[in-house]
């Protein structure tokens, strides 16, 4: 059965050969364009970093000052003593990890059912999944909260896990990617006597690594940056996530903008690391390019 899908090592798609052919001036121009675009994109982040090195009342001034001659490094020490940053980071890491794991696992599992197993009522059910994406959360927030209270889940980290882990996004996304896998491949495996679960585990999962990687990144970032969910569900300060902690920090120290920006910078860094690690899965084209037929 494995004969059909010996994954070839990556034949990097199209573009490398183009690069090989592009001449030097073009490449320099390309880098220049990328560099310029990078500056525009990074400007707000630069401002965040800069503000974190100012004193509070220097942050908002007219006109904006783009350099600071006298950086206030102490903000980075102060934030640890003035806030409960360590606990917030811990909670957020925990949530991001558990939610991502569950979302990716249950989402891709369900997606296989939607994409490759034919059964009556499938499309209606799938439409229900997409349909819920189209309803703004603030309109069903209260009924959901009441439901969660009945399940005794509020004010615990598990409420956020429950809230985020079973969303429709992962199912939708993975289904789309599974549909790109040719049915003939699966039929061949079925004829070889492989069960649907075996096909999912031994064919689909290895083939969908880039999709799994992007779902992982997106879920992790969404959980990391979620504000309204933790705001409604987590009340005890020792359960706060980084976003809600930062926001409460803003209302507590409403003029301490420099510290707020310090916190914002620190809150982004772990995500950057995760992204740098995860993005390489989009280059190597791990397995999909090995598909024959």
């Amino acid at each position: 059965m494995t004969t059909v899908l010996v994954p070839e090592t990556a034949t990097p798609a199209e573009v490398p050969s183009v690069t090989r052919r592009s001449s030097r001036p073009w490449r320099i121009l390309g880098y220049a364009a990328l560099g310029a675009a990078g500056v525009v994109v990074l400007l707000p982040f630069y401002w965040m970093v800069l503000s974190s090195l100012k004193t509070n009342n220097e942050v908002f001034t007219i006109p904006v000052r783009w350099i600071t001659t006298d950086p206030v490094w102490s903000n980075y020490a102060d934030i640890w003593s003035k806030s409960n940053m360590g606990a917030w980071l811990g909670n957020t890491v925990f949530l991001s990890a558990v939610v991502t794991l569950l979302q990716v696992a249950t989402g891709s599992f369900a997606a296989y059912g939607f994409a490759k197993v034919h059964f009556p009522g499938r499309d209606v059910l799938f439409l229900a999944y997409i349909g819920t994406l189209a309803v703004p959360w603030q309109s069903y927030m209260v009924p959901q909260f009441v439901m969660m209270t009945k399940l005794q889940l509020t004010d615990s980290l598990w409420s956020i896990v429950a809230l985020q882990a079973f969303g429709a996004l992962g199912v939708f996304m993975m289904k789309q990617f599974y549909e790109t896998v040719p049915d003939e491949l699966l039929d061949a495996a079925r004829i070889d006597g492989m069960s649907e679960y075996g096909i999912y585990r031994r064919i689909m999962l290895p083939l969908s690594v880039p999709a799994l990687a992007s779902l992982t990144l997106i879920t992790a970032v969404t959980t990391w940056n979620d504000y309204m969910g933790p705001l409604i569900y987590l009340r005890s300060p020792d359960l706060w996530t980084i976003q809600i902690g930062l926001k409460s920090f803003i209302s507590q120290y409403n003029a301490e903008y420099a510290l707020i920006m310090t916190g914002s910078v620190l809150s982004v860094l772990p995500i950057v690391v995760v992204f740098l690690l995860g993005q390489r899965y989009f280059v190597e084209g791990i397995a999909t390019t090995g598909l024959k037929g």
Binding site: V142, L231, I232, R235, S236, I244, S248, S251, Q252
Partner: peptide
């Protein structure tokens, strides 16, 4: 019992 200053009423309603 601590609430968020900016979203006090949203939390309280819930």
């Amino acid at each position: 019992k601590e609430y968020d200053a900016a979203n006090y009423d949203t939390q309280m309603i819930a």
